[in-house]
Amino acid sequence: MGVRVRMAPPPGTMWGIYEHKRRLITLRPRMGHAQLVTTLAHELGHAHYGHTGHQPKTERLADKWAARHLLTVDLIKEHSRASMEAPAIAASLGVLPTVVRTFLNTLTFAESVDLMNYAAELHA
C-alpha cells in the first residue's frame, strides 16, 4: 500500500489521521489494543481509497473497509459461541464493538442467512 505509520499525537482528540499527500498515518500513542487495531484499519481504509479531508461519506467508507478487512463471517461465528452481542464478540476479537456492528451491516444476503442459520443452530 506504500503507507508509513507513526505513533505521535494527531490533532485534537483524534485517535488517528491519514495524510494522503505524505502517505502517512499518525496514531495516538498509548491507545488500548482494540482502539489501536480499529484506528489503524480505519486509517488504512482512507489510504486505500486515497481520501483527503474528513467527510461523513469517507468516514463510513473507511469504517466499512476496516470492518471487511478485520472480520469474516467465520470469525464472527467462532467468537460468538458465548454471545451474539457485539460488545462480547468485539472483546473476544480485540476490536471495538463499532467494527462488529459495521461488519454486520455490510453482510450480503447469503452471509446474513449463513449467520442466522448458525445462530439458530447454537440456540437449538
Results as ranks from 00 to 15, higher is better:
residue 44 L to R: 11
residue 94 G to R: 00
residue 30 R to N: 15
residue 84 M to I: 10
residue 67 A to Q: 11
residue 120 A to I: 13
residue 50 G to Q: 14
residue 35 Q to R: 08
residue 122 L to F: 10
residue 17 I to F: 12
residue 74 D to S: 08
residue 35 Q to V: 06
residue 12 G to M: 02
residue 77 K to R: 12
residue 64 K to S: 06
residue 111 E to M: 02
residue 26 T to D: 05
residue 45 G to E: 02
residue 39 T to C: 15
residue 64 K to W: 03
residue 98 T to D: 07
residue 107 L to F: 09
residue 117 N to D: 14
residue 52 T to C: 14
residue 6 R to L: 12
residue 116 M to N: 07
residue 20 H to Y: 10
residue 95 V to P: 07
residue 12 G to R: 06
residue 92 S to Y: 06
residue 94 G to Q: 05
residue 36 L to N: 05
residue 114 D to C: 02
residue 83 S to M: 08
residue 74 D to F: 00
residue 53 G to T: 03
residue 23 R to H: 14
residue 10 P to T: 00
residue 118 Y to A: 08
residue 67 A to E: 04
residue 46 H to W: 09
residue 88 A to F: 05
residue 42 H to D: 02
residue 33 H to V: 13
residue 33 H to M: 10
residue 25 I to A: 03
residue 99 V to A: 09
residue 63 D to Y: 00
residue 12 G to I: 05
residue 97 P to D: 09
residue 36 L to H: 08
residue 69 H to D: 12
residue 99 V to T: 15
residue 36 L to I: 08
residue 116 M to T: 08
residue 61 L to I: 00
residue 79 H to Q: 10
residue 55 Q to A: 10
residue 115 L to G: 07
residue 53 G to K: 01
residue 38 T to Y: 09
residue 67 A to C: 12
residue 61 L to S: 09
residue 99 V to K: 05
residue 116 M to Y: 04
residue 48 H to P: 04
residue 12 G to F: 02
residue 95 V to R: 03
residue 28 R to A: 10
residue 34 A to W: 04
residue 17 I to W: 14
residue 108 T to C: 12
residue 96 L to N: 06
residue 38 T to K: 07
residue 76 I to K: 02
residue 49 Y to S: 12
